[in-house]
Each structure stands twice: as C-alpha cells, then as structure tokens.
Design a binder for these strands. Structure first.
Length: 803
RNA sequence: GGGCUGGUGGUCUAGUGGCAUGACGUCGCCUUCACACGGCGAAGAUCAAGGGUUCAAUUCCCUUCCGGCCCACCA
C-alpha cells in the first residue's frame, strides 16, 4: 500500500541519497554491457545553477536514463570548467585576493582550494534536479590531470608540426593591457567623426579617403577602391602619397570596398580593424606597427609618437587642416568594438602568438560533421557554416597569468624552443626549468609566460574524462554522445572535433544532442543585466524536481522554451495523479504475483494493445532523442486512456471479484500490473523520483531490480496486441463517453443509475458488462436503435433513465 | 547584411498532403468508494499574409511581414 500522500520535499532528497549510496549510477569499467559514454558539459563553477542549466541538463538526463534502462553501462561524469575569467572573478570575490598580485602557481592552488570548498554546494543544485551522473567521476579543467592532458596535446601537436608561432595582429585592450578574445568584445555605439582626407597621387590628381581613424595615417600601407568605381578607376595602379611621411603606397582594386560608403576610397592601415588584418594577409604586405601595448603611438609615428589614439587623432586633423587636406568632417555614430570589462575601444597590435594550423583541414572537419548524428539534424548547418567561414588558424595563446601554461621554454642564447618531457607534466615554465641543456649548450632559458586558450583545454573533455579510467579508455573514447546547448557549437563542439581529428583521427562522439534555452515568460533570453533571471532553486522548493523536469520535457530538443510557472503546476499535478492512480492500482495488487494469464477479457486486450503501441512509439522517440514526443504520448495515455477509462472500467472487477470468474480477475490484475509498470518505466526518465518511490514501495519485491532506473525498458510484446479488440474497446469507450455526455448535459451525477442503453454495434458485445458497471446502467444491449437518443459516427444509441 | 529556426484557439504547445493535439485559462455540471492538485461537458483557431504545385495544403514550393539564436557589422 502506498501512503496517502506523496511529499516530494521529503522524497526527492531521500531518493537522491539512496541512488548515491546504493551506487545506482556508478560506472563499472568491468561491465560486460556495451558502454554508453557521455561527454557531459562541464559548467563553470560560478554562483548558482540557473534555469537554462536546469533545462538542458534535464534534457540530457532524460536520454541518459533511457539508455541506462535500455541495457547500457553508462559513463556519465560531471566535471567543471574552471580555467577562465569567470573563475578568476569568483575566486577573487570570495577570497579577497587578487590574481595579479600572486604567482600563477599560487593562484591555481588557491583556485583548487576554493573549488574544493564550494564544489559540494554548487554540485548540490545539479544533484537536486535528479541528474544521474556518477558523481565520483570528476575533473576541473584547471587541475593537474587536465593541465597535463592539455599541455600534452599542445606538445603533441607541436611535434606533429601543427603548432606554430607567429607575429600577428591581435586584439588588445590598452586599458587592461591584455589581449582579448572575440567573446570578450562588446559592441558599443560611439559618436565619432568621419574625416575626408585628400591625398596626393602619382597621377597628379588628389584622391579623397574617408576614415574614422586618421591617427593611423602613419601606418597606412595601401589604398583600396572598388574595381568598378568610375570615379577611381584611373587611380588603380597609381601611388598615393602619405601626407607628412613622404611615403608612397599602392592604390589597389578591392571588391570588398563599398563605393557608396564614405568617399568610396579606403586607406588600409595596420591596424584599424580586422578587415585590415585580412587584407594584410591577402596582399602579403608588411605591417607598420605604430601602436604600443600602452596604447600610445611609437617612434614610427614620427612627431605623433607618445600620443594616445584620441590625442594623435586631433593632432593629425589639425595638421591636415593646416595643409588644406580636409575635404569635410562628418559626425557619425558607429559601432566600435570595446572590451566588455572596461568599455575601452580595442586596439590591434602585433604580438607573438601560438597557433594551431587547421585551415588545411576544413574539408576533414566538414566530413567529420557529416559522419556524426546530429539531433536535431538542422543544427549541423551551424557547424558547417562556421567552418566554411573560418579565416584564420586557431590562436591558442592568451596573454594572461591564470590558466594552463603554454609548456615551452626559449633558450636565451639561441632562441631554440624547448619542450618538457611528458612525464614531467604539468609544468609551469615560468617556474620550472628544463631538465636538459639546450642543444647549443646553454642552460639559460626563459619560460613562455602565456597560457592556453580555455577552449584548447575544454576541447579535450572526452579524452580528459575517459583517461580517468585508463583500463577502459578504449571503450570510452570515442564517446557515444555529446549533449550541449546551441550557443557553443562553434566553440566547444567544433574545437573538440578539431582536437579529436588531429590527435586520433577519429570523431569524438557518434551522436550530438543540442538543446535549446530556457527563456523568460515573454520569450526573451534570461540575463542578469536584464533582471529577468528565474531561479530554479525556488521553483524546485515549490514544485519539486520532477515538476521541473516535466516542464523541461515539454519542449522539442533544440527548441527554446519560455518559462511559465503554470507549466510547473501541470508537472506537479501529473506527479500527484501518478501517485493517486498507483495508490489505487496497488491497493488491488497487494501480494499479487504477476503471471501472464492464458485468457484476457476484451477490455484488458484493448488496454494492452494501447500500451503496446505506446511502448513502441515512446521507445522509438527516445532512440531519436525525441523525449518530448515520448512524454506527450505516455502522458496522454496515462491520464486519459488509463485513468479516465480503464481504471473506471476495471473497478467493478477489482472491488467485487466474487461476481466474476477467476480468469477475469487474473486478467484484470495482470493488465493493471503490466500497464502501470510500463507507464512508470516510460515516464521514469522524465520524472525519476515519483516513479522510483512507487517502484520501491511495490514493484521492487516482484521485479527484483534495486532501482527502477536500472530495470529493463519495457519491450513491445506482440502477443498482447489485438487490433480487433482495440477497435471494440474504442467503440465501448465512445459509448461510455456518449453516456457521460448525456448525464452531464442533464446535470446528473456520473453514478446516476440508468435503466437501459441500446447500441447498434455488435463489436461491443464482449464489453457490455464493463459498460454497464462503469456507467451504472441496469442493462446494456446490442440491437437496432429506432428512436435514437445519441448518434455518433460509429453507432446509434438509445437510453432510458431510471424514474 | 549572411546563416539557421520559429510564427497553430486568450496564453503556451503537438502534429500531419485529406474531419487540427494537449495543457493552462474561461463557462456549465458533478463531492462517484485513487485523486476536487479530481471527473464530465461546453465555448474558443480562416494553423502569420499573399501566390503557386495538387483532386485536396496548416502540412510541399516561392515571396512578404514578424520573432529568436549564431555570425559579420563596415574603412
């Protein structure tokens, strides 16, 4: 017997502990079952889990739980990604210590120590949504294990000739004195001046160039005009003279130029923006580096040396005016790339950077993308488009202190590059020393102070997680599945493919499932700055984890879903209904030992056929990562077919067994047992707590598995399918519906007695008694109906009420 | 601007070449022995707009409008 009420507040936490203590989700590397390995996204430990996390991690857990019940040994780790800016900010805030005043080694130690303290409370949120990870499989991308693998990856790629060092333009924040990545950029609308400058040319005529960055004039290396621009055709191939600098540059035809914008002539400086960088590559011209890391112009800027951008701008405008070289100045508002942290417009500088060469592998990456199974399929085009649009190799070095150090020393004497031995990893080359002298004999080195791009490490998560089980590595990698949200397809997903192809020449996974985002009730993205963040913790306090998951299962994979509190209400109602229906069923199944009977009643055949279809459809849906379809099917079946009709139709047999023959009772009990268990199992991946609670109370005794989540997924049993009975049952339920409608229309209670009902459908003959008992009709008979009371497509029906 | 994606009753969602799901909300009836966090019933959608293919389109194609995400955002 189930207790009267279900209390998720008590039950969910207890069951989560039960799963952990019983090792229900423990990975067994010796298992003989096929392994299904998941490349779980490692979240950044920062504050609390947000609703978007709860949404997408729930969705991956649906699939994981289904696979586990389908007979796979699950490898489902839970790491965290902690080698980036977010971690620096969190740790600084928590400890009051500053990264820039500490050595790298000290700060990493501080991070690891801090993580150790806050990890349990952070991970608690993820446990609370019912994720079925093996929580003992853990890594953080800044720990020794990850630094070792990340550095080894760098070294291996260096040895295979994929890593190279190059002086190259890079985005730089003159305020923070740090290089910045594209993701750290923020667009800002800024007021600026569009300056139309007149340059002398070798054909005698002046050419007018429009720019917002006149201060870069000393670094002008070329002038571009559109090849079809009639105004400028005559200039193509001529030289333009740079005012004040007595230097000539080529005037080139370039189809990138928009003739309608500005004056239609562009001067190409090194560097005003990333287009300039691209053109530099294309035309193979040397850069003129006039900008220093302090944001001031250097000696190459001549008399403007020492000035900051805006100071130099004004000075140059004044000088141009003095020479009458200004045609006009327009005020414009344009978008400027700024550093998100300090809002300073970025500068582009030449710096030494490490790259991974991969432009030659674009075709291989596209092929890899086509070989993996994408769910949903259309997400692949985002991956493809990204690769097709790639313009540069992967810059993997960052000029920061915190992170995984670039494992390289430079010989002070000959400049030779020295790498550490694999057995010495991880190293910090700014502290550790090479074990051997350089080939030139020198023992004097300096370590590379840079760190690796965070993606250079997180792109190795399959190898990182799999290598925690060296004995099973070959069965874990490549992995079965990468689940993640769609926003980082071009970063995390793509880079992981890159590493896997380069190192192992394999795809990192077979399947990819891409989930959408949780949006606020108006359909907008949630963000702290907008103040529309909804906390899953509060929702779980109110409705429970199963309700949250039920909500998360309501959206198709890959689709964003607006959060609505009412959907959580729906989820908690479902949980209650499942409890109550189970309570009723199990009350009648006390002590019942399931035995498949020889003979079934027509009503039972009808239900068994229905549930068989649901088993089939939901299995296929889960296989295709369409958990929302499976959920909708089982939800609808459970609520309507099972509760509203079947349970009502079976009640008389269950309450008054003495009025029936033994086989009729056995048929009912088996059907009830079989169907309820199938319902519980099919919905178990979505609502794992309530289903486990019911299973533990009743089914564990007869089914023997220690948890419903390691029990077998229901199998389609064709011997339980009878299409003719299904048809008959459908008509019978329609008859019941018609009678219910009649009673409702006449304001009668559903248990109001009726004298007789006549139906003109022979098919319902075997179900007459169930109809009678369900609708409290003295007699239901089959016969021709002359004066019809009710008519439907399938039958006519006459009835008489009790006087 | 480019790519992807969506636009279905008041709200949110499913779905399909042939009477359009379900939930929430609304209204009416019913306290029936699992459940009033329930049951029964009702009202409510020209399936964004226009055009095309077809015997037939909400479903396929084209155009337009609107939303979301990613990318490029202009010297």
């Amino acid at each position: 017997m189930l207790p009267k009420d279900y209390d998720f507040r008590e039950s969910e936490e207890r069951l989560q502990k039960f799963w952990e203590h019983e090792g229900v989700f423990k990975f067994n590397p010796e298992s003989e079952m096929p392994i299904f390995a998941i490349d779980t996204p490692p979240p950044t430990v920062s504050g609390k889990m947000h609703l978007g996390h709860a949404f997408s991690y729930s969705q991956q857990d649906f699939v994981v739980r289904f696979k586990r019940m389908s007979g796979f040994e699950m490898f489902y780790p839970f790491g965290t990604d902690d080698n980036g800016l977010a971690t620096i900010r969190l740790v600084e805030k928590m400890t009051g210590k500053k990264e820039k005043f500490m050595s790298r080694k000290e700060f990493i130690a501080l991070v690891l120590e801090t993580l150790k303290q806050i990890r349990p409370s952070y991970v608690r949120d993820w446990k609370r949504i019912g994720m079925s990870c093996d929580w003992s499989i853990y890594y953080t991308t800044i720990d020794d294990h990850c630094r070792r693998i990340s550095q080894k990856s760098f070294i291996d790629l260096f040895k295979s000739g994929r890593v190279y060092r190059k002086r190259t333009p890079f985005m730089w924040c003159p305020e923070c004195r740090t290089s910045i990545a594209q993701v750290e950029l923020k667009d800002e609308q800024k007021e600026s001046h569009f300056v139309y400058m007149k340059f002398d040319t070798s054909i005698g005529e002046q050419i007018t160039i429009a720019t917002t960055r006149p201060e870069l004039l000393p670094a002008c290396v070329m002038v571009h005009v559109h090849p079809n621009d009639e105004r400028y055709k005559k200039f193509i191939g001529a030289k333009a003279k740079i005012p004040f600098f007595n230097r000539e540059v080529d005037i080139m035809a370039n189809a990138d130029v928009d003739p309608a914008f500005g004056s239609g002539a562009v001067y190409h400086c090194t560097f005003g923006d990333m287009d300039d960088v691209e053109w530099l590559e294309r035309y193979k011209i040397p850069a003129i580096e006039i900008m220093g890391k302090d944001g001031r112009l250097n000696e190459l800027a001549g008399k403007y040396a020492g000035l900051k951008s805006n100071e130099a701008r004004n000075a140059i405008i004044d000088d141009l005016k003095a020479e009458n070289r200004i045609e006009k100045i327009e005020k414009i508002t344009h978008v400027v790339n700024t550093h998100e942290r300090c809002a300073t417009p970025i500068e582009i500088l030449m710096t030494e950077q490490w790259f991974i060469r991969y432009m030659d592998l674009k075709g291989d990456f596209l092929k890899a993308g086509s070989e993996m199974n994408w769910f949903p399929a259309f997400m692949r085009s985002r991956y493809d488009n990204w690769i097709k649009g790639l313009k540069w190799d992967w810059n993997v070095s960052r000029q920061r202190s915190f992170g995984v150090p670039v494992p390289v020393w430079f010989c002070e004497k000959c400049g030779n590059i020295m790498l550490p031995e694999e057995t010495d990893l991880p190293v910090d080359p700014t502290i550790d020393k090479p074990k051997h002298a350089c080939k030139c004999g020198s023992r004097s080195f300096h370590g590379d102070p840079d760190v690796l791009d965070t993606w250079a490490t997180s792109s190795l998560t399959p190898q990182i997680a799999a290598s925690l089980y060296p004995q099973a590595y070959g069965r874990l990698y490549p992995m079965s599945l990468r689940p993640q949200a769609h926003d980082i397809i071009t970063f995390w997903l793509f880079n992981t493919v890159v590493k896997s192809r380069m190192h192992n020449n394999v795809n990192p996974w077979n399947d990819i499932m891409i989930s959408g985002w949780a949006l606020d009730p108006s359909g907008k993205k949630m963000s702290k700055s907008k103040g529309n963040v909804v906390e899953p913790q509060a929702l779980m306090d109110k409705y429970g984890a199963d309700a949250l998951r039920f909500w998360a299962a309501g959206s198709k994979l890959g689709e964003d879903l607006a959060y609505m509190e009412k959907d959580f209400v729906t989820g908690s109602k479902f949980v209650t209904k499942l409890w109550n229906a189970s309570k009723f069923a199990l009350m009648h199944l006390q002590g019942y030992e399931p035995v498949k009977p020889e003979k079934f009643s027509e009503t039972d055949k009808w239900l068994l056929t229905k549930i068989s279809d649901i088993i089939k459809v939901s299995t296929e849906s889960f296989e295709n990562y369409e958990y929302s379809r499976a959920k909708a099917e089982i939800d609808n079946f459970f609520w309507h077919t099972f509760c509203d009709y079947y349970l009502e139709m079976a009640k008389d047999r269950l309450y008054n067994p003495k009025d029936y023959e033994e086989w009729e009772i056995n048929s009912a009990k088996f059907t009830l047992y079989y169907t309820l268990l199938a319902v519980l199992k099919i919905i178990a991946p979505i609502t794992p707590h309530i289903t486990e609670e019911i299973y533990q109370h009743h089914f564990k005794r007869t089914e023997k598995h220690k948890s419903i989540h390691v029990s077998e997924w229901p199998k389609y049993d064709s011997s339980l399918v009878n299409k003719k009975s299904e048809e008959a049952g459908d008509i019978a339920t329609d008859v019941i519906a018609a009678v219910r409608k009649f009673k409702s229309a006449n304001a009668m209670p559903m248990n109001a007695p009726l004298r007789y009902v006549t139906v003109d459908s022979v098919a319902v003959k075997p179900l007459l008694r169930d109809i009678e008992k369900t609708m409290k009709i003295e007699s239901v008979r089959v016969g021709s109906v002359k004066e019809k009371t009710i008519e439907t497509e399938r039958f006519k029906l006459a009835l008489e009420i009790m006087k």
